[in-house]
Amino acid sequence: MRWGRTLAKVGAIVAAAVVAVLVLLALRPADRGSEAGPAAGECWAGVDPVRVACTEPHRLETVAVGEVGSVLGGRAGPPARSELGGEYAECGRTAGRYLGADWRTLHVQLIITAPSREQWQQGRRWYRCDAITLGDELDPVADRRGSMRGNPDGSGPAPDLQLGCATHVVVLNAFIGTRRLPCTDPHDMEFVGIAESDWPDFPATADAVSGAFAVECKSRAQTYTAMPADLLDQRHVTITARPTGDATTWPGGEHSARCWVLLDHPITTSLYGLGDLPTS
């Protein structure tokens, strides 16, 4: 078993790129605003986002709306994202109910947005929680048709959002990202669970990601695959982590990462509960 520092480094870069895109997209609707304020279930499209029907191509979907706490709400200006820790935690819980599963187990990234300064001065104290569908390879986010809302019967999330199997993409001997695939197609990566860290600071380097998540990601891999620790150590697998947030969400308590297993050969079945690695 190996720890994937290169994959962890790329994962951190991709996460930062996603958050950067989200900030650019999510802040604009807040600045444009509306008299009614934001509402869960609204979808947004375009470089300068506008509300559209969720059946149209879009990137952002509002999955939760709440009120900023009284301490922050009493300030003269709107809070920074890094100050909205309690609101972000509630955002994640509400988003889970909307999406039908813990958002961290889905091809989804969340961002929390407060009102613009002008809206704040007008007395608005809402916060908006937006979700975006993660893309593949070099495109960190993806356009979507249809709502991200979970199954109407409450049985789970939209099937196309669930994390599962993938293949890693290499160009000129450099790992550039992943491409999701059905587990019955040849693939060499699989999501095995969520790890939590008690590190006080965001792990901004590959070595820091290893220190923060390696032990728990290995435990998640053991549980998911039903492989004993000694057998997992003997097999040619790489375990890696991709933080679900960034340096602005870490102070608010988002201390988690998605754990993946990378194989040295493609397989055509899921690793779940196998007890050992298939040869093909």
Rank of each mutant, 00 (worst) to 15 (best):
T249F: 00
E67L: 09
K9S: 15
G92R: 13
R32A: 15
H58Y: 02
A247Q: 12
E190K: 02
H236E: 11
D276N: 12
D201V: 14
P182W: 04
P78M: 10
C165F: 05
W199F: 13
M189K: 08
C43V: 00
D207H: 13
W3K: 03
V14I: 12
A204Q: 14
L277T: 03
G177W: 08
L27P: 00
P243M: 02
T240C: 06
V169Q: 10
A45F: 05
C183F: 06
L138F: 05
G273V: 05
V141F: 06
E137P: 01
Y272N: 10
L99W: 11
L134E: 10
L231K: 15
D143A: 10
K218T: 12
Q122V: 01
A131I: 10
T238P: 00
D136A: 07
A247F: 03
A226G: 03
S219L: 09
R59M: 10
E137V: 14
W199A: 14
W199Q: 14
A76E: 15
T238D: 08
A257N: 03
D160L: 10
L25F: 12
S155N: 09
W260P: 01
A101T: 00
R28I: 12
G92S: 15
Q122L: 15
P79T: 07
V171I: 12
G96Y: 08
I194G: 06
W199M: 11
P115K: 02
R117E: 13
A204I: 11
C183S: 04
C217G: 10
S219V: 10
D153P: 12
A39G: 03
H255C: 09
R242Y: 04
L60A: 07
A80R: 15
T240K: 03
W260Q: 03
I112Y: 06
V52Q: 01
G146H: 01
A30S: 15
R220T: 03
R180V: 02
A241L: 11
G273W: 00
Y127C: 05
W250V: 10
F175A: 10
Q222C: 08
A26Y: 07
